[in-house]
Design a protein around this nucleic acid. Sequence first.
RNA 1: GCGCCCAUAGCUCAGUGGAUUAGAGCGUUGGCCUCCGAAGCCAAAGGUCGCAGGUUCGAGUCCUGCUGGGCGCGCCA
Length: 585
Amino acid sequence: MNYFNLLLDRIKADLEGLQAAGILPAGLDFAAVALDPPKDPKHGDVSTNAAMVLAKAAGKPPREIATALAARLRSYSDTDGAEVAGPGFLNLRLKPSFWYARLSEALNAGDEYGRSTLGRGKGAVNVEYVSANPTGPMHVGHARGAVFGDALAALLEFTGHDVTREYYINDDGAQVDVLARSAYLRYREALGDRIGEIPSGLYPGEYLKDVGEGLVELYKQRFHNAPESEWMEPFREFAVAEMMGEIRDDLELLGVRHDVFTSERGLVAEGKVDKSLGGLRRKGLVYEGVLEPPKGKEPEDWEPRQQTLFKATQFGDDTDRPVQKSDGSWTYFATDIAYHADKIDRGFETLINVWGADHGGYVKRMEAAVKALSDGKVALDVQLCQLVKLMDRGQPVKMSKRAGTFVTLRDVVDAVGKDVVRFIMLTRRNDAQLEFDYAVVTEESKENPVFYVQYAHARCHSVLRKALEVMPGVDLSSSSLARVELQRLTHPDELALIKVLASWPRSVESAAEAHEPHRVAFWLRDLAAAFHALWNRGKEEEALRFLVDGDRSLTLARMALVRGCALGLAVGLRIMGVTPVEELR
RNA sequence: GCGCCCAUAGCUCAGUGGAUUAGAGCGUUGGCCUCCGAAGCCAAAGGUCGCAGGUUCGAGUCCUGCUGGGCGCGCCA
């Protein structure tokens, strides 16, 4: 369990004790009392602001409250000290026995270490991610959204949320018509026509040649000289299905799987757009009107125009938004309203959308729509993923769609492997740009965080293998090691490693609450660093080597530590979708 | 012009819902392999947290303005 919660419960109980003793008045609100790791480890293991946040309501100086609380907290057998510091901080020091208990918990939990019930009872969560348009293969940028969404979903599952992973197929807009026309051209090409240059406005990619050949196989000559009205539907359907097949294959390469694929076209066909907009119209939120021109610079060809609008301004957007085109078809926003209405109807209470940063301007209107549709009951969190800058030895990789030199997701995965792509994509906050350097990520050094962490994991297993050689037949399973004499672990670096390991449950919970999976990557680096440090300590002082000749109980205690570290690394890596490796060579 | 995101060490970035003396990697300098994997470790140097105000007992963290960068801005998705 998250030991901060454990200690917080203890502190609250003691605050109640102070109330009973008449030192603090009754009726205080403890909600603001927090327990945090101090920035500076010299200040102890945990620090609470209790005295400071209660001082005003209690009518006593913070240091006085802190002193009284400290006296109580010192009495616990696993507490080494409680000091009042600064304006009224209470810094707690915990005895090794406290940390042994945490290590033991980790070992007993095994692969489930850190799993939390945080999300239990909080309602179903829908994570929509990737949702790349089915008009071509996925590129590097898509990979970031895919990995981010997938890791976030895993993180939420691990912390007890009911999660659905979803992909929205944009198969209803003008661009899939363009896809169909592009496929038609390739169809004619496959039938032997000379098509020459691909006209601008159509997709030039070579990948459509297969689609053209597939169409010939299916339809032979049937649509060779047919008008667009005849082939448009079947070609669009075929091409979209082919592209979705490609995309699914690409996602599979990355180890990304969705539970639900929702088709935009399907929503329209089922009348969900009419239904959801009808609902909004009844609430008075959809109307016929004329928009003001955008503030500031007015587009040159601006003309007032009567449109069907959604009253987004009522929910915090800058302007009302059109839902219908002049030809009567729906705007993308309209179908997106229907899509979100559908998600709400399916019972989700939290919607998370992972989008590319270029959709940032769309966030407010979608938030407005979800508020309107759910009467404010459903939360929408849009996470924007910034650009991935592909580099090679510090030089940007030139990409141009026109020149056909853009780098696909498949290229990158083929070059460096799934695990590297996944890990690197999570080494930055999603809203910061990310440099992805081919040379660095394939380097086998500390500069490469994937190898750094994997190396620590491999070293753990290397020691465990060695231990088995030295002590044949010994049971090194985590459940068995949970019961060894952990009090033999006394060196500060050993305790430091346990402390990092023990911080996992809290790190996982806070990463999940903040929707920030990159924090898992940072925690893994910290744990790996603590392990590498301890390892090297054994090179300087023989007594600190993990395997100690002639001292079986000490060796076993250290195996418990190594096993705990290994399982911590493995659990974190698995949430990121990275396979922990036991050997690097 | 308007809106959103970003600005922390020479470089790339963390900073756990405001709190005690701001962290890491790379790079630089100097150390550590007869020994469980040196693909690693230790130490030193390096910061007015973009600028200016404000809220607060207390701000890298919250608010306002400015500067610089990214993205977007009526029937493209």
